[in-house]
Amino acid sequence: MSKIIRMLDSSDTTHFEAMDTGIEFDYIPHIFDKLTTGDNRLYGLFLDGQMVSMSGYSIYSSRYAMLGRLRSDRRFNGYGYATELMAYVMNEAFKPGSIHWVGANTEEDNLPAQRVLERIGLTPYVTLHGALTKDPSTFESGAHPWQPITDLARKREWVDKYYAQTGAVFPYECYYPFPGSTDLFQDDDLKQWSFYENASQTRFLITKYDQKKHHYLHAVYPWHDIALQPGLWETIARDYWELKQKTDDDTYIWMDLTREEAQTLPAGHPFELPSPWVLYGINRVTWKGKANSAGMIG
Rank of each mutant, 00 (worst) to 15 (best):
residue 97 G to T: 05
residue 30 H to N: 14
residue 38 G to I: 11
residue 75 R to Q: 12
residue 75 R to I: 06
residue 40 N to W: 12
residue 100 H to M: 13
residue 58 S to V: 02
residue 71 R to G: 10
residue 65 A to R: 02
residue 62 S to D: 13
residue 73 D to F: 15
residue 67 L to N: 02
residue 54 M to N: 07
residue 87 A to P: 02
residue 76 F to H: 13
residue 61 S to I: 00
residue 41 R to E: 01
residue 39 D to K: 13
residue 69 R to F: 10
residue 30 H to W: 08
residue 38 G to R: 06
residue 73 D to M: 07
residue 48 D to E: 13
residue 48 D to Q: 08
residue 77 N to T: 11
residue 65 A to I: 07
residue 50 Q to L: 12
residue 102 V to N: 03
residue 56 G to E: 02
residue 49 G to K: 12
residue 78 G to K: 12
residue 35 L to A: 05
residue 72 S to H: 07
residue 75 R to P: 02
residue 60 Y to N: 08
residue 87 A to I: 04
residue 93 A to C: 04
residue 62 S to Y: 11
residue 104 A to G: 11
residue 79 Y to K: 14
residue 43 Y to A: 01
residue 48 D to K: 04
residue 85 L to W: 01
residue 81 Y to N: 07
residue 42 L to S: 00
residue 43 Y to P: 01
residue 30 H to S: 15
residue 73 D to C: 09
residue 50 Q to I: 07
residue 49 G to W: 10
residue 72 S to W: 01
residue 83 T to P: 03
residue 96 P to Q: 09
residue 32 F to I: 11
residue 39 D to Q: 12
residue 103 G to N: 01
residue 104 A to V: 02
residue 85 L to Y: 03
residue 89 V to Q: 03
residue 49 G to H: 11
residue 32 F to V: 07
residue 87 A to R: 12
residue 96 P to V: 06
residue 85 L to H: 03
residue 62 S to M: 09
residue 95 K to S: 11
residue 88 Y to R: 07
residue 93 A to R: 00
residue 70 L to C: 08
residue 78 G to Q: 08
residue 72 S to T: 15
residue 73 D to E: 13
residue 93 A to P: 04
residue 36 T to Y: 04
residue 88 Y to T: 02
residue 76 F to M: 12
residue 90 M to E: 13
residue 39 D to R: 09
residue 68 G to M: 07
residue 46 F to L: 15
residue 36 T to S: 06
residue 77 N to S: 15
residue 33 D to C: 08
residue 40 N to Q: 09
residue 91 N to Y: 12
residue 32 F to L: 09
residue 30 H to F: 13
residue 62 S to L: 13
residue 76 F to L: 10
residue 46 F to D: 07
residue 93 A to S: 07
residue 79 Y to V: 08
residue 86 M to Q: 15
residue 90 M to L: 14
residue 56 G to S: 08
residue 78 G to I: 06
residue 85 L to C: 11
residue 89 V to K: 00
residue 101 W to Q: 05
residue 42 L to F: 01
residue 81 Y to H: 14
residue 83 T to Q: 11
residue 55 S to E: 05
residue 52 V to H: 08
residue 99 I to Q: 02
residue 55 S to N: 06
